[in-house]
Amino acid sequence: MEAQKVDMFIMANGKFFESHQVAQIRERLIQMDDSKWGMIQTLQFKDPTTSLIISLLGGSLGIDRFMIGDTGLGVGKLLTCGGLGIWAIIDWFMIMGATREKNMSRLQQVLY
């Protein structure tokens, strides 16, 4: 794919991924066939900042985990008052990274 298109994608969506993954994504996109461009452009990613806000507000009900698609962990948090409050606090720091990982796996489903 053209480097210009890829750079545009990176500029628009770079914040949704871990910084160490961006270079790898760029390389992979450049190698990729042009026919997949449409699919990649329509992908919806979860914003890490939004999930942080949700984690701060509804973390002890597990809503943040439900939102990013970790339903099982969400149920776990809900049933235990956010892991007796401890897990909820840990997740304030973990949730942004977890959201970026989820975004990466969503992109990977299209890439590979």
């Binding site: 002890s60 009900l61 049933l79 008052c81 007796l84």
Partner: peptide, 18 residues
Amino acid sequence: EVCPIKHLTNIPCPSCGS
């Protein structure tokens, strides 16, 4: 009682009492 919601708002959460 360790539930943060109950400590903050005095309202029990869905799983309080489990």
